[in-house]
């Protein structure tokens, strides 16, 4: 499907208007484009203004300067009902909806489409059940919201936004309160929706791993620097992520794509079977070693299979380990 710009911002200033005509500027100048069929992840530390940006893009709060265009039309020219048909949101706000069923909540997504009394027509029912299907929660249609897990609630809110039939979906930290599997499930779901229904999906998150793994595009927002955007891998390779996360006691590891502590790194060579060496590398990193290409100057590890690991020490002696645990023991006892 053709990827089109659905939302763009030019020289956008975000922040709050205070009393007496003063302004608290959070970011003075943002230039952004959101594409259809893509999942865009907005990353930033607490206080970087992620929520403020999302709120401004959804017109929940006014911008301080600049322009936002949605589907090529300035956001301020939208009536409220037009906007509710164009941008749908999933928020972190606590709801009061424990006493209605999953179906009833998703049917609230039809509000912009229904009449004065909110009566559902046959077409609305079709769209609601399609939305329930798309997030895989149809079997819980008649369950009360209060009886759902956090992950299921999030799916229901996403189904609501699908029933709203907006081309743009904005989600504020959709994975924040979820366990690991639900996080991945939600991200896979959002990817699927972007690809299959050509939605533009913008979400803020603190899950760096997931953003790198699942995001088509990352927006890196910080207080003092201009917004960086790009495909995750490009941002890793050109050191943008490394400088973005630079902070005392934390480094972004370009090889693994993970944040870790900057201990003194002793190089250890790793080679062999891909799977075993990948996880051997993971264990070595945790222990403060630096997995490297094998060399005669330092200890190297040759992974034959998960149960057969050969350790060549720098002095020429060779040891054998049958698990990663044993390998680590050999290293701490014999290295140097």
């Amino acid at each position: 499907m053709k990827q089109q710009i659905t939302l763009s911002a030019f020289n956008l200033g975000i922040g709050y208007r205070l009393r007496g005509g003063k302004e608290k500027v959070i970011h003075p100048n943002l230039n952004l484009q959101l594409y259809s069929g893509q999942v865009t992840c907005l990353l930033g530390m607490n206080g970087a203004g992620k929520s403020t940006l999302l709120r401004t893009l959804c017109r929940f709060q006014p911008s301080l300067s600049g322009e936002i265009e949605i589907m090529g039309k300035p956001i301020n020219l939208f009536t409220q009902s037009e906007l509710s048909l164009t941008v749908g949101v999933v928020l972190t706000e606590k709801t009061n909806a424990g006493g209605i069923t999953v179906f009833e909540l998703v049917s609230l997504g039809r509000h912009p489409h229904t009449g004065f009394f909110g009566q559902l027509k046959e077409e609305d029912y079709k769209i609601i059940s399609a939305s329930l299907d798309a997030v895989g929660i149809t079997h819980k249609s008649d369950t009360y919201i209060s009886e759902l897990s956090d992950g299921e609630r999030q799916k229901v809110m996403i189904a609501k936004v699908l029933a709203q039939e907006c081309p743009i979906i904005v989600l504020d930290e959709p994975t924040a309160f979820l366990d690991v599997t639900s996080r991945i499930e939600i991200m896979i779901l959002l990817r699927k929706l972007a690809k299959e229904q050509n939605k533009s999906i913008l979400l803020s998150t603190h899950d760096l791993d997931l953003a790198i793994q699942m995001g088509d595009c990352l927006w890196l927002q910080s207080r003092d620097n201009p917004m960086k955007r790009g495909v995750p891998e490009d941002l890793i390779l050109d050191n943008s992520l490394e400088s973005f996360f630079r902070k005392d006691g934390i480094v972004f590891d370009r090889t693994t794509g993970k944040l870790s502590s900057p201990l003194s790194k002793i190089p250890v060579g790793v080679e062999g079977d891909f799977n075993t060496s990948y996880w051997a590398g993971n264990a070595l990193t945790r222990e403060g070693y630096l997995p490297s290409t094998p060399s005669a100057d330092y200890t190297s590890i040759k992974c034959v299979s998960p149960t057969e690991i050969e350790i060549k020490y720098a002095n020429g002696t060779v040891g054998h380990a049958c698990s990663i645990e044993e390998m680590l023991k050999c290293l701490t006892n014999r290295i140097l």
Binding site: F60, S84, E93, T95, N96, A97, L105, L108, H111, Q164
Partner: peptide, 13 residues
Amino acid sequence: ALLLGETYAANLG
């Protein structure tokens, strides 16, 4: 719509 809170309600028009 207000069961979802004012922001959600506003987003629903």
